[in-house]
Design a protein around this nucleic acid. Structure first.
Lengths: 346, 346
DNA sequence: TTGTAAGCGTTATCAT
DNA sequence: ATGATAACGCTTACAA
């Protein structure tokens, strides 16, 4: 029954600054001073008030602060359902990194969903207009993404993880150097003695996909392997099944590749399965690399290019706080695992 | 420059009800009436005000509403980093389902992080006290989870996906019948002609893991296969690598299993890899089932038990709205794919 | 049918 | 050093 009574009490409305003042025997404004300008309050009064605050578990009401400052200290983040056929996204890691970075700056994250870019524009505007969120983090920016221009136009503040290809509008973005990431995978494979290095990526038309494809093309050229790699460029949607089909096609060639650079871990998993079905021992007979370093990659001992997602989160957060503007390109890092560690087969 | 000017304008503070009233030439309270009690306003006035609202893109300020009602209409949700070695969680799907269900009830979701249960209790209390969130959704409830009792004690409202084993405290929970899920996998495999059906699960001591283990044990007994399945119960942490080791151990037996029921997709992937290394064709020489129906399962053609996560989301939401109390058990469903579709080998 | 006034909890400005 | 007052934008009695 004592339990019950305590619960009844706790279930009451949270204490306000007025409650604290009443208990401490001072005015409400003295309580405010203790919090806002402690030096203006006599130490003994301050100590007493602070003790009461602690004891009652007083926390300033966010809604009242938001109203007062016309700012909610809240950032909007869209969660998307995982693409059908895709394995896993790294956006849970991304959101986690953001939330941690936001916590340090006393910023909260609000979740919203939207079926497409146009709907997202609507939703962000509504959330902004209603003061639910001060700003937004956009990601998965397509080459011709509508959102940056639209939000600039509507006056909705945002920062982006990724960037459009248009280059017309100016906004603050953070991106990972996809081109350099894939290039480092090619370098690694060449170093292991591979010459016929295939690429399995998305069809042309996405910024990320195109940059990854160019990373392969450029690196192959830089190593003088254009002839060896001629025709080893396969494209399909981001699905393991589709990637497996592409891999079968490549393996059927007179001169099949000895290594595959996949544009995502999902595609890499498809390639792995195809190679296994083909009777190859992945990591010995054939080398494979993925992209994003998802948990799946670690579990399957798949080499993969890791995006510095915690750094991205901190950079986006600092951009949201207005600490810098413009673009910022971060370097990913190849994580080498069994799938590509061995020297090329002779 | 016209663009610039428009952006300047839009960058201004969002319109308030007073702005609408000014433009419409009515009082602020008439605007309120148009929104709250439209029938009380003359149709022509109403139409005019509504047009202005639309034109200005007016949205009631959430902070002001929250202050007025002492309720933020916001629900807290903890995001956790994925466990090391685990493939993927289904919590991104869960959060998406919740957000969609919340949207329909005009509820927002706020994200927070916490390193452990004790810290989470602190954080939820702080968020509740500050009026940032009215209630919370807990998940991954451990057998002896501290959180339900602590939050009841602190008067922090919540609903849970999952439940403790204690049974002492009473709170509202939704759970999926883990026992029945695993049992349906065993039934399926028996139906395909398997008799030596192994289980690969977590060590004893978690509610979910224990219920899944019991699902296997009970089903095996029900089919009279205790003798065939003696010693085929392997346990390890939720990591593909650990599961592969366990599978090797089972495959080395004089009478190796012809089917594996894994407690999670992560474990199932480990078992798949072990079987492949062992030279077995998964889906022909050996059958494997997982749990959670993650995207990984679909990509690898792994049969898996699917939790009705959208239903869980809606049920939790309706519980949060106070539409029902107590516990509710939902049924999962086995999704049959290539990994377990074929008849047992002779 | 429309307008007036008060209050939600906070912070900032100004007196005392 | 401390206390009174006003304002943020909204809703809801109540008065006109």
């Amino acid at each position: 029954m004592a339990d019950e009574a305590r619960r009844e009490m706790n279930a009451a409305a949270p204490p306000t600054a007025t409650d604290v003042a009443k208990v401490a025997g001072v005015s409400r404004q003295t309580v405010a001073n203790v919090i806002q300008a402690p030096h203006r309050v006599r130490p003994e009064t301050r100590a007493k008030v602070e003790a009461i605050i602690e004891q009652l578990g007083y926390r300033p009401n966010r809604a009242a602060q938001a109203l007062k400052f016309s700012a909610s200290r809240t950032i909007g983040f869209r969660i998307q359902p995982i693409a059908p056929g895709a394995l896993n996204s790294m956006y849970d890691r991304f959101l986690h990194a953001l939330a941690e970075a936001g916590h340090e700056a006393d910023r909260q994250f609000l979740i919203y969903t939207a079926p497409d870019a146009a709907a997202e524009i609507e939703v962000t505007q509504r959330l902004h207009r209603s003061g639910s969120a001060d700003a937004f983090v956009l990601y998965d920016i397509a080459a011709d993404d509508l959102r940056p221009a639209a939000l600039l136009d509507l006056g909705v503040p945002f920062v982006a993880f990724g960037r459009t290809d248009l280059g017309g509008e100016t906004y603050t973005w953070i991106d990972v150097d996809n081109l350099a990431g894939i290039a480092s995978a090619v370098d690694h494979l060449v170093h292991r003695g591979h010459r016929r290095i295939a690429f399995v990526g998305w069809p042309d038309g996405t910024t990320i996909g195109d940059r990854r494809a160019r990373g392969w093309r450029d690196a192959v050229a830089r190593h003088g392997l254009q002839a060896d790699c001629a025709g080893l460029d396969a494209r399909c949607d981001d699905s393991a099944t589709a990637a497996a089909e592409q891999a079968f096609g490549l393996l059927s060639r007179a001169q099949p590749p000895t290594a595959f650079v996949a544009a995502t871990d999902t595609l890499a998993v498809g390639v792995m399965r195809a190679c296994q079905r083909w009777g190859l021992d992945v990591g010995r007979d054939v080398a494979i690399t993925g992209f994003d370093d998802t948990p799946t990659a670690a579990a399957l001992e798949l080499s993969s290019i890791r995006q510095p997602i915690e750094t991205v989160g901190r950079a986006l957060m600092s951009a949201l706080l207005g600490e810098h503007e413009g673009g910022q390109l971060l370097q990913p890092q190849l994580v080498i695992r069994a799938s590509s560690a061995a020297p090329a087969p002779r």
